[in-house]
Design a protein around this nucleic acid. Sequence first.
DNA 1: TTGAAAGCGGTACCAT
DNA 2: ATGGTACCGCTTTCAA
Lengths: 327, 327
Amino acid sequence: MSKRVTINDVARVAGVSRQTVSRALNDKGEIDAGTKQRVLDAARELGYRPSRFARGLVRQDSTTIGLVIPDLLNPFFTEVAAGALEAARARGWHVIVYDTADSIVEERSTLEVVVAQVDAVVGYFSLDEAELDRHLGGMPAVLIGRDHRSPRFSSIRIDGEKGVHEAVDHLVAAGHRRIGMLDHAGRAEPSLRRDWFTDAMDEHGLHAPVVGNAVQSADGGAEALNELLDQHPGLTAVFTYNDIIAMGALKAARRLGKAVPADLAVIGFDGLQLGTVVDPALTSVALDTRRIGALAIAQAGRLVAGEPSLPDEELLVSAVLLVRESA
Amino acid sequence: MSKRVTINDVARVAGVSRQTVSRALNDKGEIDAGTKQRVLDAARELGYRPSRFARGLVRQDSTTIGLVIPDLLNPFFTEVAAGALEAARARGWHVIVYDTADSIVEERSTLEVVVAQVDAVVGYFSLDEAELDRHLGGMPAVLIGRDHRSPRFSSIRIDGEKGVHEAVDHLVAAGHRRIGMLDHAGRAEPSLRRDWFTDAMDEHGLHAPVVGNAVQSADGGAEALNELLDQHPGLTAVFTYNDIIAMGALKAARRLGKAVPADLAVIGFDGLQLGTVVDPALTSVALDTRRIGALAIAQAGRLVAGEPSLPDEELLVSAVLLVRESA
DNA sequence: TTGAAAGCGGTACCAT
DNA sequence: ATGGTACCGCTTTCAA
């Protein structure tokens, strides 16, 4: 492994001092054109590249934010990430992306590493606040889609209540009464989204919604729909935990010979762009994913700079019903 | 904006030297338990976080690789990115993701910024080698899906020839003779994928393939298929530039009342996981996207470390036909 | 126009 | 167990 070429090497070869090298490289004035050229040539020849650490050490700017997401392959997180990258880029900040592979173990090891590499973290975490704090040791952190108790954290809150109510209203207005839900499987408690759904159903006097559980994949959604319809053949509409599950449900419905939305209306959650590639295009309770990413970055930036936090009400992203074709 | 808390501040408050602070923080032995606690308390109190620059400067390890992709929202690039992240993580390296938004202008500004932030770049570039070199100034670079002339660059090459031949063989074996293609619109020249397709058709004595052009989106694919079938109603199969376009074609086919694959067989390119959420699941000439990302990282790592490049034949990723349902 | 010297915030090595 | 000192690679005064 070849030794690093430093500014001193360049200086020696060019026959000048390193300050002069610095001047040449950073396009400062106050330098003879000939000297500058000589330095540049030497630098090229040696393959010199300035150390980003040394630079960063002396110029105290340069903000790097760690974005922690459970699964880059999940289009929802990809959209959030895209929003974050865009927002960061606009400010000249950098984003290091960490994928925790939906695993607590990976999340821990990610956090351990993250503290040494970035100025702030934003993202989706499943560890409790105490442990997060322990790993992060004072680093600014913005939790997405999850409230915080400790003032040490910030949150980007997601409110789907209004959107889910709109969805149920929409279904009821179209004449649906027997409406089921496909919730997320494999979590201890029912999801918030399910609570919103139940509430909305209650409001219409439609009680005891029937709920199935789907693992997080299109196949999971398909399977869950099959089971649900098996037990409750009378259902004319389903609301799902998210769009991926809804897409699986779409597929399963077609296999069962049910036309969507005529025989079975389907409404997802997330409002992924992806919802337009399936047929019929997916109606969904949509989140502004770009905005989520952008907000997280903005808030992280303020924390890093020691500026006051964004006001709470701006840290909230509300879902709205996006009517396409499936309902 | 509050001033940075340094190790000296902690040392002063704890009443020790900074070396002792360093010991306490890095869990070195040779330190009194009481002292260590005192230091830790002081650090917490002050909200001290070590500077990653100073650390990086003295510990010469820590590799950061820049991943440049045209569009994170394109699932193909997402999959490559996921592969890269995974490979980097396994080595303890970091990946900064840059999205150039499919724009030359953004690509330039990205490159300008990238040089100061990472040890090597990998990704998809559209600038010519001379300009890349100029921006990169000696930084190791791995071009994906694109060959290089200058030995200054590395490439991860993509070979779809075999896979596309398999696809055509598959169609021909199923009795198809009138096979069209939906190429990528908006590029000056026909794509490599089109060349492979034409060759494969030739081999079967099926000449003059009919080709339409689709813009890069599902809608683009749908539109292009409509046009193509309008001009060539006899087609019984289409091969597309990529999976997204194929998914649009799938949708368009259904709208036209054509069953897939019975009336029209569809084969995409890329082999996206996404291909399973549509119905019928997409048959595709599949690339191992994870591997592409992993190879790029591996090669970048070697370049950074000054190790010999991976042998050329290992830097090649070949596509294979992935038969699902649409053909 | 150029160079010398003083840090930036840490860690490593050598004393004590 | 603790502190002193040098040094990582670069930029920024300040002189010359």
